[in-house]
């Protein structure tokens, strides 16, 4: 296949990944790596490099809108970024030593988990219980806009959330994904932040996490321009258009479509990982 044809096909696939990822909230990055490795037989390292770059683009492009609405908790984000960036650098350092087959299996598991999570109902909650001592010291508690005005919330489970954020950073670097599902798990479940605050703060942090490992991968040559440009431009344009039509889209059926794609890719990654043929 010529470079031109490959670029066009990858750009098209990435566009739909970005579009569906933004409409469903799952993020486009999660299916870019399986698409590149399974469909286009690209080496996993090139795939991870290209995917991480697209993760930065969508995170930074979308975060602006959320920040404007006042949901993002900048203090929580910055504090947890310490854990995600250390995790990302550790993951980047580890990636050279982990066999591709093990990474493929890990990827399959994370894909299945993300698909399953996207169907879990998430009720909007906020706790006004006394905050964790660290949360008080770090002044993490805040308030967020609701239909009934500004609702204050406090923050619990800080050490657990911090620890899980380290894991999110490692996974982000190893698999070239935003790890949004794990980040939301840490903030929503462990730290008891309101769901909207968790998702927007997660988006806010994803770019920083991916930037840490992307810098390392640039030096290693994982970021191949011929593959990174169609992925970045495709995912970014898909995500931007997705954000525009989000209000009118029927997200429930779209989520079903996207989750099916994710599950099929997960099965393929698991199969190839176990057989050692990726």
């Amino acid at each position: 296949m010529s470079i031109l044809l490959l670029a066009i096909l990858i750009a098209l696939g990435s566009f739909f990944a970005g579009l569906l990822g933004s409409l469903t909230g799952l993020g486009g990055g999660i299916i870019v790596v399986p698409m590149l490795t399974i469909l286009f037989h690209v080496d996993l390292r090139y795939a991870v490099g290209a995917s991480l770059v697209s993760v930065i683009a969508t995170s930074s492009g979308a975060a602006a809108a959320y920040v404007r609405e006042g949901y993002t908790n900048v203090r929580v984000g910055v504090f947890l970024e310490v854990a995600t960036t250390i995790g990302a650098l550790a993951g980047a350092a580890m990636s050279g030593f982990i066999p591709t087959s093990a990474l493929a299996v890990l990827f399959g598991v994370v894909l299945l988990y993300s698909a399953w999570r996207s169907f879990q109902p998430h009720e909007e909650h906020s706790t006004t219980a006394p905050p964790h001592p660290w949360a008080a010291r770090l002044r993490l508690s805040s308030s967020y806009p609701t239909p009934h005005g500004m609702q204050p919330y406090s923050v619990e489970g800080v050490p657990g959330g911090f620890g899980l954020m380290f894991v999110a950073g490692v996974l982000s670097a190893l698999l070239g994904i935003g790890s949004g599902a794990v980040k939301v798990l840490a903030m929503d479940r462990l730290m008891k932040l309101p769901f909207k605050v968790s998702t927007t703060t997660s988006n806010f942090m994803i770019g920083v996490t991916a930037a840490a490992s992307s810098g390392v991968y640039l030096h290693r040559g994982y970021i191949e321009p011929a593959l990174a440009f169609p992925v970045m431009l495709g995912v970014l344009s898909g995500a931007l258009i997705g954000a525009r039509i989000l209000a009118t889209a029927r997200t429930r059926s779209l989520r079903l479509v996207f989750a099916t794609v994710v599950v099929v890719l997960a099965a393929e990654m698991l199969y190839k990982g176990i057989r050692g043929t990726l």
Binding site: S2, I3, D43, Y222, L233
Partner: peptide, 20 residues
Amino acid sequence: GAILFLVQHGASRAEFAVFV
């Protein structure tokens, strides 16, 4: 950069199966 790259190298064979 992508447009220039495709004009210059678009016709070359894509070889990304092995990491170099």
